[in-house]
């Protein structure tokens, strides 16, 4: 599963743009990952400019 470090995240949406299953919701300063939809592809973890996402398989 993928977890968000809310204190590192800049809420830029780069992760949302590569998520193939629309599992990420972005508000102005909140990022939510829907763990039921997430397929652990780790694309979001790779593209995050600040490494604010952490994948644990």
């Amino acid at each position: 599963m993928v977890q968000v470090k809310q204190d590192v995240c800049d809420f830029c949406g780069t992760c949302v743009s590569v998520c193939p299953v629309d599992a990420i919701e972005l508000l102005e300063a909140v990022l939510i990952i829907d763990q039921e939809k997430c397929i652990d592809c780790m694309k979001c973890v790779i593209v995050c400019p600040l490494r604010a996402l952490e994948g644990t398989k």
Partner: peptide
């Protein structure tokens, strides 16, 4: 279809 492949996005700071 707005999803981007990894090779089609530049990740920036």
């Amino acid at each position: 279809k707005t999803h981007l492949n990894l090779q089609d996005i530049e990740t920036c700071v």
